[in-house]
């Protein structure tokens, strides 16, 4: 098997980038819960729709942060790989 060191590191980095995006599950669930509660709040109190929507969007954007950390790790592994330099 002619697997070079460089090839091995690149292949494992690609797998690692894919695994890092599993972090997307959490924000997905969290944003769904927030949107569901927002919808039921509007159902109970339709007059406060504007306030509810802006609060919901703010909370969702904060919940999204953990997913973006995973995305940042994936980008680092794919495009600015620090492991290649260690060979």
């Amino acid at each position: 098997m002619g697997i070079t060191d460089r090839g091995l590191v690149l292949a494992c980095s690609a797998i690692g980038a894919g695994l890092a995006l599993i972090a997307g599950i959490g924000p997905g669930v969290g944003q769904g819960i927030a949107a569901g509660h927002g919808a039921s709040a509007v159902g109970r109190n339709p007059g406060a729709k504007g306030d509810i929507t802006s609060t919901m969007l703010l909370g969702q954007a904060v919940a999204e942060t953990t997913g973006l950390y995973g995305l940042a790790i994936a980008f680092i592994l794919l495009f600015a790989n620090p492991l290649i330099g260690k060979l």
Partner: peptide
Amino acid sequence: FSLSLRLFGNVLS
């Protein structure tokens, strides 16, 4: 860092 990474990650994606 969390403020800047949130903005950066969203726009970059």
